[in-house]
Design a protein around this nucleic acid. Structure first.
Length: 578
RNA sequence: CGGGGCGUAGCGCAGCCUGGCAGCGCGCCUGCUUUGGGAGCAGGAUGUCGCAGGUUCAAAUCCUGCCGCCCCGACCA
């Protein structure tokens, strides 16, 4: 299939200085990718072979799960996006273009609009449901800051699938099928991963999982239980409502409030230093604007508010920290002295405030704080909720055991959409009961390039990439130690032809290079099996098989080498998928 | 969008402060030697010094503007 001397495979010895993470460095060094411009990459032959391997695994498993492949346009008319409401909502990540007639288009960052428009025109009855359509296509998202090579880039290959169902039960079944398909896909790609619960935004009754490849270089933090199988991303990770302390009279322990002069003392840190208290004795009062209404959110001083949780709890579309003039209006003081006592807004409190006594709050008066504040006596908290960011020393919300926080790379996402798009775009069907209903949708994405990069993050050493057999660009590389030695080159050539005849993906390194150069390149590009053809072994009628992953070397007689390799490859590709 | 840095041979970089021959390493080409972990010797080719303008006898070097890239932050699914 391929002679190294004829391949377009520009490897480099030196690590490019602007590549931060190992997958980016190695993809450049191994001649897999080259950058065209910010966040936009060309896949060279070696890189593209890996991409196609991943795509084919995805394709096989999607088909197995009953999804059908389509191919949608990358360029989409603005009208569809106006219809779904996302033309205005999506923001700057949406790359908008105009044609010669001055009509608006975008380069698709995702395809809910297109698929929904297609399906609403073609599906009329529950008899045509459920359906699951997917595609593997290039997406464009104008990322604010592309980085890490193909990990976070602007143009990228993605598999996106969309399911349409008539009933909730059926929709959940569609979701489960995709969840299982994803598990098979990432297992077959040789990845260590885990599905985690993810925030699904404010669509009622929906749920969502992210498939995270665990890697220290990951951009996302994930929380997992050391005991049960609970796992969630940071945004989603729940914190249980603490037990309320009972059995004694709180009021007895309340000290009288005391307003203290705290000139220019604003942050929690400053308050603690000034009053000689710990952050956990202070209550932080943050003023948010929630769909235009101010809300005071209380959290213990050593905790941080999780805006995703807050947004979900308040069921609002827009949520942002209030501007200074709003703070002045609501608290009557400048930023830094807000507190719950006498505040002119709704108050909600994180669970961390339960059981706090005699705490410090802002006085809603410039340069003043209040000591020994107590809820119930000094102000009323009607709403307690889980509003803060989880920490590693919190306990599992399911079983109460210890948690662990690790970093991960999001390679896949399954999301139950519900009727968000079918409603906005009027995708309905006629149900058995004769009523017109909105289709229940789900969407399911996999980042193809990111999956390949995540694999490198997880599987490499100081010499280069270590591909698993399933997505390796080639399965075998034959390295004749000296191409000018006819015995060696003839033997290598013969083996090469016999492996090709077996359908094995093999490179013959027929370059007139020194052995060391060839070994280094073979290691760098990560081919799982290297067959070295050298004079000593050949004299015994043998060649050396070296495994990239373990470094183990076996001498195999020429008569059995073909069968040995075929069997090894078969063994390594057919990984059990549970 | 804010802050910082960079832009000089295919790649990595020095030179810029203090204006005066365009340089180093790797790679590339030719020849000889070498050939089991990125060879040695000899010879050679390669530049819009990011772009535009300005100052100057003279600009890679100083000044102004622009463009591109990288990093940090903010923002965002």
């Amino acid at each position: 299939m391929m002679r190294y001397s004829e391949m377009f495979l520009p490897t480099t010895k030196e690590t490019p200085s602007d590549a931060e993470i190992v997958s980016h460095q190695l993809m450049l060094r191994a001649g897999m990718i080259r950058k065209l411009t910010g966040g936009i990459y060309t896949y060279l032959p070696l890189g593209y072979r890996v991409i196609r391997k991943v795509e084919n695994i995805v394709r096989e498993e999607m088909n197995r799960a009953g999804a059908q492949e389509v191919f949608m346009p990358a360029v989409q008319p603005a009208e569809l996006w106006v219809e779904s409401g996302r033309w205005d909502m999506y923001g700057k990540e949406l790359l908008r273009v105009r044609d010669r007639h001055n009509r608006d288009y975008c380069i698709g960052p995702t395809h809910e609009e297109v698929i929904t428009a297609l399906v609403r025109d073609e599906i009329q009855t529950y008899r045509q449901l459920p359906r699951n359509l997917y595609q593997i296509q290039t997406k464009f998202r104008d990322e604010i800051r592309p980085r890490f090579g193909v990990m976070r880039c602007r143009e990228f290959g993605m598999k996106d699938a969309y399911s349409f169902d008539a009933t909730e039960e059926s929709a959940e079944e569609s979701y489960r099928k995709m969840f299982d398909a994803y598990t098979r896909i990432f297992t077959r790609c040789g990845l260590s991963f885990r599905p985690v619960e993810a925030d699904s935004g404010n669509i009622g009754g929906s749920f969502s999982h992210e498939f995270m490849v665990t890697a220290d270089s990951g951009e996302d933090a994930i929380v997992s239980c050391t005991s049960c199988d609970y796992a969630a991303n940071l945004e989603k990770a729940e914190i249980s409502r603490p037990e309320e302390e009972t059995g004694h009279d709180h009021a007895m322990e309340y000290s009288p409030t005391e307003e203290v002069h705290t000139p220019d003392v604003r942050t929690i840190e400053e308050v603690c230093t000034f009053l000689d208290v710990a952050p956990r004795d202070v209550v932080k009062t943050m003023i948010f604007m929630c769909d235009g209404e101010p809300v005071a959110v209380l959290v213990r001083g050593d905790e941080d508010i999780n805006e995703a949780k807050l947004r979900n709890y308040l069921e609002c579309d827009s949520l942002e920290l209030a501007m200074d003039d709003t703070i002045l209006e609501v608290t009557g003081s400048p930023r830094g002295f807000a507190g719950p006592m006498g505040i002119k807004s709704r108050i909600i409190a994180d669970y961390s405030l339960m059981n706090m006594k005699n705490f410090v709050v802002g006085a809603n008066r410039e340069d003043h704080h209040i000591k020994n504040c107590n809820s119930g006596r000094d102000f009323e908290i009607k709403d307690y909720a889980d509003l803060r960011i989880i920490r590693e020393d919190d306990v599992c919300p399911r079983c109460g055991e210890k948690l662990r926080i690790v970093r991960g790379i999001e390679v896949g996402h399954v999301f139950k959409l519900g009727v968000k798009y079918s409603k906005a775009m009027n995708a309905t069907f006629l149900d058995r009961d004769g009523k017109e209903k909105h289709m229940i949708m789900g969407c399911y994405g996999i980042g193809i390039g990111r999956t390949a990069a995540a694999c490198i993050e997880q599987s490499h050493d100081e010499d280069g990439i270590i591909w698993p057999m399933s997505i390796a660009p080639y399965q075998v590389i034959i390295t004749p130690v000296n191409i000018n030695d006819e015995d060696l080159s003839d033997a290598a050539e013969e083996l090469y032809n016999s492996l090709i005849a077996e359908g094995i993906e093999v490179i013959l390194d027929d370059r007139n290079e020194r052995a060391g150069v060839k070994f280094k390149d073979a290691d760098l590009i990560g081919i799982p099996i290297r067959v070295t053809v050298g004079a000593k072994s050949l004299a015994e009628g043998k060649v050396e098989v070296r495994f990239r992953k373990s470094g183990e070397v076996e001498k195999i007689p020429l008569e059995t080498i073909r069968d040995f390799i075929t069997k090894t490859i078969m063994d390594q590709i057919s990984i059990s998928c549970g």
